[in-house]
Design a protein around this nucleic acid. Structure first.
Lengths: 234, 234
DNA sequence: AATACAAATCGACATTTATCAGTCTTTTAC
DNA sequence: GTAAAAGACTGATAAATGTCGATTTGTATT
């Protein structure tokens, strides 16, 4: 189970300042206030960090590990929106809406999560226009990302969607053509909107065609250009 | 072609104040400044109001008519994200990102659009925290809407997606169970992520089963509960 | 009203994708 | 170390969806 502690990983918010662009707009007193309203919790791989539908009282920043952000769709199916890495701020969606979580987060790894009280955040938005601007920037970027995801999910066939998924993982998550996948095959399916069996099949096809090398969860992209072509032609 | 004029429809931004929640947080001088940096343009049904990829210099508020907001996907296919009604603020996505439009807007009707300079808007965000908050609220709501749309597009079958489309149109756009559709069959398909022929087929099915009554573009929802059920079961 | 053109419609067919059952492999639990 | 469970994989089949061609309907133009 999750273990409580005030400062296991990052000593305080003044540290985060360096790593999180949004927080760098905050003044020293503001950071100190943020720091007083936070705590860290450790999660084991597979544990739910927060669950769609529960009330949203804190924002979340991972300090170690990876997690999946997903919405619960029809008939217990999950749709993975994106993979969360350390130093991203998560949970803004609920800030000004209905104080409910509209997605779930689950650890893909042993992770450490820092929870920051929403009220401290809101205060910073009200008093620091630069911070508010950064916040808005963040929101709008996610909006644009959503559009691309919708196009991929609704207009591309399975090969294109898997290609998009692999490009996303290597480009945005692991920043490497060669990585150890934290996702199960089911997760890959939930990320690309298809059945698990179909995801397995396409991955195997890509492997057989020499586009990727896949052994268990070790994944190497051998022909990135080909993936891009598959992504574009749908 | 589009016809220029400073104040065809709404006399000035002090009017809009009443109709647009976000603007109601602005002070009188702020509204006056906004008013000095705006102009109105008329569009005929079918005309493009702005086009994905072009540079974003203005935000947009419709004062009359309806428009579709869509992204250009693979192979010239459109994905309609939502329908725009008067008194919604459009174009925030590009505000703080790369100053490009990431979607297109096309008139579905004879419409009047009011263009507001982005710089005037940004200034209000920086100087008026309440306005910034309203802006953020707006962004996050759209984010949540996006999640629902992604689930619909990627996890529901055609019947469920058409049901979602009809529920959206009657609930959010026309606010009536009985309306004159501005969308073509192709538009309905682009809204629900399927081929035109499939959209026609499902609509006809719903008509034959007595769930809706559809004659050309006159649409009446006869059994809303049934639509909800179809939406939930996918 | 006659023509031209775009939109809507429909049935037949092809393709894509999901489902299912069964096997194999890897990890977990004791 | 072995049994059990979970995950990965595969082929066959069924279901969902798209495509195509032909026809009809509606609308705008003369």
């Amino acid at each position: 189970m999750a273990k409580f502690s005030k400062s296991d990983n990052c000593k305080n918010c003044l540290d985060c300042n360096m790593r999180i662009p949004m927080l760098s707009t905050l003044s020293r007193p503001e950071l100190i206030e943020l720091n007083e309203n936070r705590f860290e919790v450790k999660f084991k791989a597979g544990e739910t960090i927060f669950k769609q539908g529960t009330s949203a009282t804190h924002l979340l920043i991972l300090t170690t590990g990876l997690a999946k952000l997903y919405v619960e769709g029809v008939q217990d199916k999950q749709l993975i929106i994106r993979i969360i890495k350390p130093w991203e701020i998560i949970g803004q969606a609920s800030l000004y809406f209905d104080n409910r979580h509209h997605y779930s987060i689950a650890a893909l790894d042993n992770t450490t999560a820092c929870f920051i009280e929403i009220s401290a955040f809101k205060k910073a938005i009200q008093t620091n226009p630069l911070f508010a601007e950064e916040f808005i920037k963040n929101c709008t970027q996610k909006g644009i990302f959503s559009f691309e995801k919708m196009v991929s999910l609704s207009q591309k066939q399975m090969h294109g969607r898997i290609a998009d998924g692999l490009i996303y993982l290597s480009g945005k998550v692991y920043e490497n053509l060669n990585f150890d996948l934290h996702l199960s095959r089911q997760d890959v399916a939930d990320l690309t909107g298809m059945s698990k069996d179909s995801a397995i099949r396409i991955l195997k096809e890509f492997h057989n065609e020499g586009i990727i090398e896949l052994d268990g969860r070790k994944l190497k992209i051998l022909n990135y250009g080909q993936l891009e072509r598959i992504s574009e032609t749908g």
